[in-house]
Structure formats: C-alpha cells, structure tokens
Amino acid sequence: MSAMEGSPTAMDATPAQPFAPPRPTLVEMRDINVAFGGVHAVREVTIDLRAGEVVGLVGGNGAGKSTLMRVLSGAHPADSGGIMVDGKPATISNPRDAKTYGIETIYQTLALADNIDAPGNMFLGRELTDRTGTLDDAAMESATRKVMGRLNPNFKNFKTAVMSLSGGQRQSVAIARAVHFNARILIMDEPTAALGPAETEQVRALIRQLKSEGIGIFLISHDIHDVYDLSDRIAVMYHGRIVGIVNKDEVTTDEVLAMIIMGKPLEKVTSEEIAQLHG
C-alpha cells in the first residue's frame, strides 16, 4: 500500500471540497478570434472544459459554434488566441495535431468516406499495418468489432461500404472511432441532426456513457432539449461572441432560449422577455 493511502490524516488536511472532487480542466480556449473576410465568425471567445463534463454550445444559425470547434479540432486556424490542453499551451494547426492531444471530432455529415467500410473509416488516417507497411485489415476489423460490441452490439455490417448504412449506424462508426483512439476531449457538432428518434436516443445514451468514463464533451446542438438534458454547463453564442456560460442546474430552458434569441447574458434577461417567448 502506498504512503498516500496509508495516511488518512493527510487527506483530511487538504482544503475542503465538500461536494464534488475537483475535476481536472482538459481544455481552455482563450480569446479566440476567427474572421472570414469581413465576417467576424468568432470574437474573443474564452471557454473551458473539464473531465467528465458536457458543455453544450448553443446559438442561432451562423453564431460561430462550428467555427469555434473547428479551431479546436485543427480544421481551421484561429486568427488569434490560445489553446491550453491539461494546463499546457498546445499547438493545434491541423487535425492530426488535435488527435495527438486526444481531441476527436464527430460531425453531423462530414466525417465518413462513404465508399469505405466501417473498419476503414474507423482507422482512416491511422491505419494499422504490419511490418512491411501492408494494411492489416483483419486486425482493424477485429478492433472495430470489439469497440462496436461495447457501443452498439446490433451493428453487423463490417464489410460493406458505409453508404449503405443507416444514419445511426454511420454515427456509431464515427463515435467508435473517437472511443477507440481514447478520445479525452470529444467535439460533437450536431451529432443527431440527421437521425431518427430511436437513433437519437442511442446517441444520447452513448454521450452519457462517455461522460461517465471521464471524457469531456463539447456538444453543439440545435435541439435545446437535447442540450439541456445532457449538459452540465451551457455556453450561449451570439454573432461570434459568448454571451454567457451558465450551469444547467441554475437555469430553465426558457432562460437559455431567451439568451439565444436576445443575445444577452442571463442577468440581463428580464422576465417580461421570457414571457414574450411564448406570446
């Protein structure tokens, strides 16, 4: 037994954290700016994510949610600002960099090559090979079966191009990819937008499972109820800015909706404005 475990007094002496154990911060994005020509898509955004936490990212169309997450996933460079991973400055200039930090991204549509099978997609860009550099398809299929067995036991089509799969199955391939490569930070951009109700429920269950395994998740969704259900904190974006980050437990869906529509922080949203939402 180690010395730490052997001395309960040392534990007692640490400053009180009465309710939740401190969860380490995985990512901090600071003062991020992105402009496309004249369009300032992301302005001075600062946001962080802790282990085992889901941060919902909401806002109207064109608010800058996807662009912000593309910066973190290495798909688009920021014009200015910094990213810290595990408290250390991180350089993320392409998708490969992001993956080395354990950042994986799941997109609504973009992520799969339709003409390639599930194992091929799961390992896309990180294929397993033998000593001669030859693709080890059997090993990749075997690994895919293993992950799928955990995530989606009904999944059977390991040899067919993913274009013939349903939306839910395709999304589980994308999620399996993130899980297999030990994502610690998961970005999900509208993961259920293309799915039916049953498949959406499947993805929600997956998100809860991943969260319970200590993975931090940024969740972008149009569906306020989705976000409200799954998130610990909700960040509201409006015209490229973050107007407020609120604890889910301290707000109602109406209040979040008002923030999204008015583009104001929670303190400035009046009860009349909330009443108007339903008028």
Binding site: A75, T105, I116, L124
Partner: peptide
C-alpha cells in the same frame, strides 16, 4: 486515394 474520392473532407479531417 479512395477516401479522398469518397469524401475529401473526411480525408482531410482524418489527418490525411
């Protein structure tokens, strides 16, 4: 090559 033909964005995002 095949993944680029199937979905160039997916290939790019896969770090290819």
């Amino acid at each position: 090559v095949f993944s680029i033909g199937g979905n160039p964005d997916a290939a790019e995002l896969g770090g290819i």
